[in-house]
Amino acid sequence: MNRVVHPIEQESFRRLRSRLDTSHFPPLTRAVVERVIHSAADLEYASDLVMDEGTLAKAHAALHSGAPVVVDVEMVAAGITRRETVCRLREAVSGPGLTRSAHAVRLAFEQVGPGALWVIGCAPTALEELLTLDASPALVIGLPVGFVGAAESKAALRESGLPAVSNVSEKGGSAVAAAALNALLYTPLSYSEEKQ
């Protein structure tokens, strides 16, 4: 089923591209950069995001082959418009040394096992917990936001060597994390052809 793009979205991307040349990015990287910028109206993401085209290609294939998508909060799930997601935050509890978000990651991993795509847009502790598990993810979109632990958790993700999309700064959030995943969902299997 082809996605119908609303005229407002088309105009938004046209304006984005009039302000920022994204043509030098490889196809999937460009898709992620543009969709994240579109979600936040923040051109700085073009230089703040960190990702690798080869990693995105493998994640894109896994996603379109039906790999599970796990999110840290329902706000991220609400932004992912064309795919069912797993979010275990409602059942999670906090305890000594464990936040609800971290516990939710444990519960989700017990449910989906290895090979999932993980989309973390809210809680740095969720990303930190994921890094302690043997999750063998297809991709970790690690874009939590905040002044406490966000930049550090994303740096730890990059140092882990896991396949990832992250950013260097403290900014991020549910909308941009969902946008990064949507970029891969919306990009057709024949993504080598120019997108949009």
Score class of each variant (00 low, 15 high):
R90Y: 05
R90V: 13
A92I: 04
V93I: 09
S94T: 08
S94K: 10
S94D: 14
S94F: 05
P96L: 14
P96I: 09
G97K: 07
L98Y: 00
T99G: 09
T99E: 07
T99A: 06
R100Q: 06
R100N: 08
R100Y: 03
S101P: 02
S101V: 01
S101N: 07
S101T: 08
S101Y: 01
A102L: 11
H103D: 15
H103R: 15
H103M: 11
H103T: 09
A104P: 05
A104T: 02
A104S: 14
A104L: 00
V105R: 00
V105E: 05
R106I: 00
R106C: 08
R106H: 02
R106K: 11
L107R: 09
L107F: 06
L107A: 11
L107D: 02
L107Y: 07
A108K: 03
A108C: 02
A108Y: 01
A108N: 05
F109L: 06
F109P: 02
E110V: 00
V112P: 06
V112H: 03
V112F: 03
G113T: 13
G113V: 09
P114C: 12
G115D: 10
G115L: 10
A116H: 01
A116M: 10
L117M: 09
L117W: 03
L117D: 05
L117N: 02
W118Q: 03
W118H: 02
W118N: 06
V119H: 01
V119C: 13
V119N: 05
V119G: 00
V119L: 07
I120R: 08
I120H: 04
G121L: 01
C122S: 12
C122N: 14
C122K: 06
A123Y: 00
A123R: 04
A123P: 04
A123L: 00
P124F: 15
P124W: 08
P124G: 15
P124A: 10
T125M: 13
T125W: 13
T125A: 15
A126I: 13
A126L: 14
A126F: 09
E128W: 10
E128V: 15
E128G: 14
E129P: 05
E129S: 07
E129A: 15
L130I: 13
L131C: 15
L131G: 15
T132I: 06
T132L: 09
T132M: 11
T132N: 02
L133N: 03
